[in-house]
């Protein structure tokens, strides 16, 4: 599913805009490494639009088209908060892996 979306992104325009949020200024070599990694991941040329956002506390937040990769510290804390709240309702010991296949795939 995701790769399909990425292909569409690729077909849409050869150079995609990537919005990047960081908490502190990145060194040029860090920036280049991030660009390379993202281009490999999204399989298209990217133009990075970096904004300084101290509210994300640390890490990197990236958006390309409709896809967001939230690697910020704030995002992690948010996910933890979410997890703890969910734990007060339903505790799923296998974690939040909703993709676990049904026991018998009889409809295939």
């Amino acid at each position: 599913m995701m790769s399909q979306g990425l292909n569409q992104t690729q077909e849409g325009s050869p150079v995609e805009q990537a919005q990047v949020r960081v908490a502190t200024e990145l060194r040029p070599d860090e920036l280049q490494a991030l660009k390379n990694t993202l281009e490999r991941r999204f399989q298209c040329a990217l133009e990075l639009e970096v904004t300084l956002d101290p509210s994300i506390l640390g890490g990197v937040w990236v958006r390309v088209g409709d896809i967001v990769i939230d690697g910020s510290l704030q995002g992690r804390l948010e996910a933890l908060r979410h997890y703890l709240r969910a734990q007060s309702r339903v505790i799923v010991s296998s974690g939040f892996d909703l993709t676990a296949p049904p026991r018998t795939a009889y409809y295939e």
Partner: peptide, 18 residues
């Protein structure tokens, strides 16, 4: 709480947004 925080695993994955 500590136990639950320890059990928490963070997965970095791309999500689609609208």
């Amino acid at each position: 709480m500590r136990e639950q925080v320890r059990n928490f695993k963070f997965a970095l994955r791309p999500v689609s947004i609208g």
